[in-house]
């Protein structure tokens, strides 16, 4: 058992370690100083974060409704939310491209206020969010389901409005799951390639940059970018995790 489990772990860790070993400090140093790399990492981070943030404003109330209310065709709604996980991401990219292009209703409406999704960070954020939203919604829904409904009833009984109950009882108690879902959505969006490359090749997010360096120059040039990107992602992941733990310890 332990041996088999160890093999699986090795399968995950070995390629990563191999990549780190094969990257020389010189390569790393010159890549860090490469403005294109730094720019793409920065773009990836903020676009994924902004997308996660904006969509969470809509997703968290939806997750609450899904946790608390029974309604017709709820199972269908739950299925729709999980849909992005199962469809191929390149296909998802095509779908989003069709949805946001200047010929579409949404695209042309956005164009009237000067916003063009295609080849724009907003389009990248939409593609990232499309494939990663289920992580946030499902985690938040689990979080709300774990809040005893009795606490909400007790708060109502003490004269609080439903909105106050949501912000003072449900949200703080589901916070841990929501943050965890937020981090998952952010991380998943950041690493997205398939959907993003179709909606916006430029400006280049790091996954696309790695792909381009690999295609144009080969493994040796793609590797340092990957190492730096993985390190930055891990750092962010760890920091956000620690922050959410601290927030909970405070509670």
């Amino acid at each position: 058992m332990i041996f088999l489990g160890g093999l699986v772990l090795l399968f995950i860790i070995a390629p990563l370690i191999g990549m780190f070993i094969h990257t020389t400090p010189n390569d790393l140093f010159s890549t860090i100083n490469d403005n294109q790399v730094a720019g793409s990492i920065w773009l990836t981070l903020w676009v994924s974060f902004a997308g996660t943030f904006v969509f969470s404003i809509f997703s968290i109330p939806l997750a609450y409704l899904l946790a608390r209310k029974k309604f017709l065709m709820k199972q269908l709604v739950l299925g729709i939310i999980d849909l992005p996980v199962v469809i191929p991401h390149a296909a998802a990219g095509i779908a989003i491209l069709g949805f946001l292009s200047r010929d579409s209703v949404v695209g042309s409406a956005a164009a009237t206020v000067g916003l063009n999704f295609i080849g724009n960070p907003a389009g990248i954020a939409a593609a990232m969010a499309f494939v990663s939203l289920p992580f946030l919604i499902n985690a938040a829904r689990d979080g709300f389901e774990a809040v005893p409904e009795r606490l909400e009833k007790a708060a109502l009984n003490l004269g609080a409005s439903p909105a106050r109950v949501f912000f003072t009882i449900s949200l703080p108690l589901a916070w841990r799951s929501i943050i965890s879902g937020f981090i998952m959505m952010f991380a998943r969006g950041m690493s997205e390639f398939g959907a993003v490359v179709i909606v916006a090749y430029y400006p280049m997010v790091t996954s696309v940059l790695i792909y381009e360096r690999f295609g144009a120059f080969g493994l040796k040039y793609a590797r340092p970018v990957s190492v730096i990107f993985i390190t930055v992602s891990l750092l962010f992941f760890i920091i956000l995790r620690l922050l959410s733990k601290q927030k909970n310890a405070g509670n």
Binding site: R150, K153, L156, N157, P162, L173
Partner: peptide
């Protein structure tokens, strides 16, 4: 009438104290 407008204070058997 809505729960929050009744002013009938209920102490639940399982107390429902706000843990946070």
């Amino acid at each position: 009438q809505r729960i929050q407008d009744r002013k009938l204070g209920l102490v639940f058997q399982d107390l429902a104290v706000f843990p946070h």
